[in-house]
């Protein structure tokens, strides 16, 4: 192949439309991936690879239909390939379990969405040091070693703290649901 061969230039309007719908749905696709591969670094990598596949397939997307379900089909394929290449995930999810989880999540989504309505207020109730941990680990996506260094605790202690925070949030959400049900 000639070194100077140029690839065809994509349609800018198509690029813009893709960026618009992808960015509008990126969170939802990420959450779908996290449900299957809940390690955040791995999920981000899968999301990246999915973004590339989606762009390649974007001319097949029917704009009259919702983007996220269409995109999640490709995300599932990328996730399968990811799992196949990594022993840790293969040991947990091979043999159809990943597809089973994907299907079950769809069934449970209305219930999950109803619970997650209470997440914001439960976040507000966390003590400041716990919110800082959530910020560093989830939003800033800082490496756990860095987070541990900042709070002057061991990595294990930070993981344990995150586990406790999630438990507190779940308990708070359950309590809110019960209050809501009681009127």
């Amino acid at each position: 192949m000639n070194e100077n061969t140029e690839q065809p230039r994509p349609n800018p309007a198509n690029q813009q439309e893709f960026l618009r719908v992808f960015l509008a749905n990126e969170r939802e696709i990420l959450r779908y991936v996290v449900a299957l591969v809940p390690n955040l670094a791995d999920a981000q990598e899968i999301l990246q690879q999915t973004a590339i596949v989606l762009w390649e397939k974007f001319d097949q997307y029917d704009a009259g239909r919702p983007f996220a379900p269409w995109a999640c089909r490709f995300a599932l394929n990328v996730t399968r390939q990811w799992i196949d290449r990594r022993q840790r995930w293969k040991a947990l999810l091979e043999g159809g379990l990943v597809e089973e989880l994907a299907l079950r999540r769809e069934q449970l989504r209305p219930e999950f969405d109803a619970r997650l309505v209470h997440l914001d207020q439960c976040m507000q109730k966390l003590p400041e040091h716990q919110r800082s941990l959530v910020d560093a680990y989830y939003f800033r996506q800082q490496d756990i070693d860095v987070v541990a260094g900042q709070v002057q605790r061991t990595v294990e202690a930070v993981y344990k703290a995150l586990q406790r925070i999630r438990q507190q949030l779940r308990e708070c959400i359950e309590l809110s649901l019960r209050k809501e049900a009681a009127g």
Partner: peptide, 30 residues
């Protein structure tokens, strides 16, 4: 799955945040 959903929601921002962002922008800036 519920725990993974919560974990994923934390990693992707709150629902309130998502709505506010979507409402206030030309497209859903992040």
């Amino acid at each position: 799955l519920w725990r993974a959903e919560l974990h994923g929601r934390l990693a992707s921002g709150s629902p309130e945040f998502s709505r506010a962002a979507a409402d206030s922008m030309n497209y859903d800036r992040q």
